[in-house]
Amino acid sequence: MNSAPLTPKQRERILRAATSAPSKHNTQPWWFRWDGDDLEVHVDTNRTLELGDPACREAHIACGAAVFAARLGYASLGIGTETELLPDKEQPLFVARVRVTDAAADPRFETLYWSLPSRRTNRAPFKPTPVPTLVLEYLRDAARDEGTWLRIVEREPAYEHLLTLIREATGLEEEHLRTERARWIDPPDAVHRLDGVPGRSLGPLPENPTGAVRDLAVGHDVDGRGSIEFEQRPTIGVLETRDDDAAAWMTAGQALMRVLVTGTRYGVAASFANQPLENPDLRDEVASDAKHYGTAQMVLRLGMGVEVPPTPRRPLTEVLRLSQRA
């Protein structure tokens, strides 16, 4: 057990790990508070998407990803933790507490921690080399270890059906959703922003659209973006949970982060093709017919990645609020 209180440097390490998590359009919809050495995680409603994420499902997933990354930060210090989801019924936006325990840190987590700085949402073309079958199994294991299921969609007609749903959802997207998103995508004040997706992180436009590559800046010209040929048949995974409530969304977020950093360790990159999940009329069609799983939470485009620039992160002073106690 770590009997001494966390030092400021150790707290910074944990918080930097937590804030490395992905979020929709890099809105970073979280804030944190220390309760002794335990870390509270809250949804920041000032940074959620009223139109694009009205139920805050994806904001919860982002906070769940931050929870898992914080767990890695603790583990890198040799500190074991347990996670309490939705710990206060009176505060529904208080979504998790990462609690220090007497248990030893999971040794696998320290290894994963060192992959955090290299993890990126990768909107560039992937290498022609397929993701090795064994690595795909590692990704499935990562999802299972967090109580979810990663369904790799490979066979026809399921593969083409999913691509069709992504294309259909893209075509049905309404203008007000694009307007809301535009506040976060290559904004005019991007040079001064520490959130959102700058132009350099959007990736090129595909010369051979398959549907699995999402253009976040559709209808908006981005200087220097250009176009290039993408992989013909990307690997697509669907992250699924048994239930579809706030606790399930938090669980999905932790699983997502575990899948992503596991993939990073083996050179696998990911971007997201969640368009059909954002459309209530199409979301159910993405899910599997599995007996115990089937609620789709994320659609991932996976492949062997090339290096891409990071998206910015806000300073810790902006995401940390007053501790409850010393």
Rank of each mutant, 00 (worst) to 15 (best):
R193F: 05
T27Y: 07
A18W: 07
A21N: 10
I166V: 15
I166E: 01
G224E: 02
P8Y: 11
R13V: 14
E318G: 03
L72I: 15
H220N: 06
P204I: 02
I14A: 08
F230I: 05
A296L: 03
D35G: 06
P92V: 14
A252S: 12
L6Y: 12
G64N: 02
H25T: 11
A246M: 04
C56F: 05
D141L: 12
T164P: 00
P198M: 02
R13T: 15
A270C: 12
R108T: 14
Y266T: 13
I166Q: 07
D186W: 06
M304E: 02
E84F: 15
M250L: 15
Q297H: 11
Y113C: 07
F230G: 03
F230C: 02
G263T: 13
K9F: 12
H42I: 05
A252I: 13
L49P: 04
E146S: 14
T27C: 13
Q91S: 12
D53K: 13
R99H: 07
V299A: 06
I228L: 03
D38F: 14
L51V: 13
N279Y: 13
V95I: 13
R314G: 04
T19Q: 08
R33S: 06
R181P: 00
R183F: 08
L239R: 12
G303W: 08
V67W: 04
E207P: 00
M250T: 09
G203E: 01
E285A: 15
H60Q: 03
G147Y: 03
S23L: 11
K24C: 08
K89A: 15
R140H: 09
V41G: 01
D289V: 14
H292D: 05
T311V: 12
A273H: 14
W34V: 12
R265W: 05
N274F: 10
D215P: 02
V222A: 01
R71G: 09
N46P: 00
H42G: 02
A103C: 04
E50I: 15
S20R: 14
E40M: 05
Q10M: 15
L116T: 10
R16S: 09
I61E: 00
P206H: 03
A246L: 06
A273Q: 09
M250P: 01
L239A: 10
L282D: 04
A269G: 13
T164E: 00
T101I: 08
S23T: 12
F272S: 05
G64V: 11
R140M: 05
E175A: 14
W149A: 07
T241D: 00
P276G: 01
A217Q: 03
G147F: 06
T170M: 04
P310C: 07
P312I: 08
G80L: 07
G267K: 12
S227K: 06
T19W: 04
R57F: 04
R155V: 08
G73Q: 09
